[in-house]
């Protein structure tokens, strides 16, 4: 028996909206410690990693490890049927070929339940080594979303250059060039608005804006986003999911031809 109840059900809705355009299907691995997901997009350029700790749920039970293959656009459609303030419970029996979703209104006057078919999936799992990154930048997620959107007007790629003074995003194309420089915040009164750069070594990397714009769909999940970068390894774009865990996107850099 698997059952996970989340009073702040809107987190599920936001999470699905964050990944449904990047991934078509994925396996939700459920165990006694929580729910995890790891999947690459169809072109193998990016990877999504989700971790939700059992402690973060209001009720959590998982008697036997369960791998649920889920068609994400379908789950997203069903999650859209939940109200923003609804409590969401996900349930499955052992060896089930369906998953149940129960949406309860806060006042308990409306209860909806949906059942969705699971799918058989064979996916490759990537071993991601624990890495010390050369630069880790924390910034408001809305600022990151805005920068990716604005620079997409100029080109397909962004060059992210990080030094201890701050981080610079640049794009160029037929119409010209654009540079957006963010300096490290002088004071950190408002933690959510701060730009914080933690640098061991300066880096300058090139990434496809198309993917960063997909990642930025996770903006409603968290006020801050964390970018971790090292030369010649994938960028990590991390959004915290409240007390539950995290949503991480990995993006392979563009490399010199």
């Amino acid at each position: 028996m698997f059952e996970a109840r989340l009073v702040q059900g809107s987190l599920w809705k936001k999470l699905l909206e964050s990944i449904k355009d990047l991934l078509n299907e994925a396996i939700f691995d459920c165990s006694s410690t929580g729910i995890t997901l790891q999947a690459m997009d169809s072109s193998h350029v990016s990877l999504v990693s989700i971790s939700m700790n059992s402690d973060g749920f209001d009720t959590y039970r998982c008697d036997r490890n369960l791998s649920m293959g889920i068609h994400l656009p379908s789950l997203s459609k069903i999650m859209k049927c939940a109200g923003n303030d609804d409590i969401i419970t996900m349930k499955a029996t052992d060896d089930a070929d369906t998953v149940s979703l129960v949406f309860e209104s806060q006042n308990n006057e409306k209860v909806s339940d949906y059942e969705m078919k699971l799918i058989d999936l064979d996916t490759e799992h990537l071993g991601i080594p624990e890495t010390e990154y050369s630069c880790v930048v924390k910034m408001p997620s809305s600022e990151f979303q805005r920068i990716c959107r604005d620079l997409s007007q100029l080109g397909d790629s962004v060059v992210i250059a990080c030094t201890k003074e701050g981080v610079k995003f640049s794009a160029s194309g037929e119409l010209g060039t654009g540079n957006i420089k963010l300096c490290q915040s002088a004071s950190t009164d408002k933690e959510e608005e701060a730009v914080v750069v933690d640098m061991n070594e300066a880096v300058c990397l090139t990434f496809a804006l198309r993917y960063l714009n997909f990642f930025a769909k996770a903006t409603p999940l968290s006020a801050q986003v964390q970018l971790s970068m090292s030369k010649d390894v994938p960028l990590v774009v991390e959004y915290k999911i409240s007390e539950l865990g995290f949503l991480r996107f990995y993006l392979a850099p563009k490399i010199e031809d």
Binding site: M40, S43, H44, V45, S46, L47, E124, H125, L126, G127, I128, P129, S157, T206, A208, V233, P234, Y250, A252, P253, K254, I255, E256, D257
Partner: peptide
């Protein structure tokens, strides 16, 4: 020019 890298060339399949 630049070429898009792929995730599986950085991390190994386990």
């Amino acid at each position: 020019g630049t070429m898009q890298g792929r995730m599986d060339s950085f991390f190994s399949i386990v």
